[in-house]
Write a protein that binds this DNA or RNA. Structure first.
Length: 259
DNA sequence: AAGTACTCCAACCGCGACGGA
DNA sequence: TTCCGTCGCGGTTGGAGTACT
């Protein structure tokens, strides 16, 4: 199911990864980290481009990546978020612990696309006015958004609004997060967090760090990664398990409140 | 059993964003 | 301000596996 290994004109290997390559990459990142993806393959003794190494790590080798079928709850979250965010797979992935953007994207196209509202494309076009028609070989119904900070801000605002006022079927996603050691919920809206939503990643990033510190105080294993992604959290040790998947989805989805 | 069509997902590609010189 | 290197995102492709005829 994977591309056959081959070498490009620069001698870089392409195609499927071997077990040996996986081991090398994993061993290197676990000991030295990945501060520079471009230099990493050479240092790790791999004949791959940095991009390929990054992709392999993010989508497959990262210890917090969960493999296997999506649960019904995960499906629902993906559908709900896609309705709101469109093809912002990285943002959707940020709310689904252990799932990479690539995996979610694939799953969407193979399983969930037909569950989306039929007029979604029209809806999005009307809502944000920032949608370009599909180009090239894009499949029918695929929305191509022009990436821009402006649209990002609009998405953030949209999220904030829906999280504070939504009473839709997905409203349960926005219930509060509680610190087990405190009686009052520690959830934040943009206003009560006294945060200006000028840049969601920046804002969310700092709040994630806060969340991490909170977690650490409660002896929850954390990854050394500081990236803004659920993959940066030791999801297996933290909140995700097959048994309490829905609670976990709720908790992670609550991070919408931080935008 | 063999050929064909379809499904699914790992991996590739191109482009824009970002940060440093 | 511009240039350049790097990173990350989203769209697309390749091809093994499976279902169907």
């Amino acid at each position: 199911m994977v591309r056959a290994p081959c070498f490009d004109k620069h001698g870089m290997k392409k195609g499927a990864w071997s077990q040996d390559e996986d081991n090398k990459l994993r061993a290197y990142i676990e000991t030295c980290g990945h501060s520079n993806w471009r230099k990493l393959p050479k240092l790790a003794g791999l004949s791959r481009c940095g991009k390929s190494c990054r992709l392999r790590w993010m989508n497959y080798l990262h210890p917090n990546v969960k493999h296997g079928k999506f649960t019904k709850d995960e499906e629902d979250v993906v559908v709900a978020l896609h309705n709101k965010l469109g093809n912002k797979w990285s943002m959707i992935a940020a709310r689904l612990p252990g799932r990479s953007d690539n995996e979610i994207k694939n799953y969407w196209h193979t399983h969930l696309k037909n569950r989306a509202p039929k007029d979604q494309t029209v809806l999005q076009t009307e809502q944000d006015g920032n949608v370009e028609p599909s180009k090239g070989k894009a499949k029918a119904g695929c929305v191509v958004r022009k990436p821009s900070l402006k649209s990002q801000q609009e998405v953030d605002i949209l999220l904030t609004e829906s999280s504070s006022s939504s009473s839709s079927s997905s409203s349960s996603y926005y219930s509060t997060i509680s610190d087990p050691n405190e009686s009052s919920p520690s959830s934040l809206s943009v206003s009560d967090a006294n945060v200006t939503p000028k840049c969601s990643d920046e804002v969310a990033g700092s709040l994630w760090i806060d969340q991490f510190l909170w977690d650490k105080d409660h002896s929850i294993m954390l990854s050394s990664d500081k990236m803004f992604s659920p993959l940066g959290v030791g999801a297996d040790d933290f909140i995700f398990s097959e048994d309490n998947a829905m609670d976990d989805v709720l908790l992670w989805s609550n991070l919408d409140l931080y935008y």
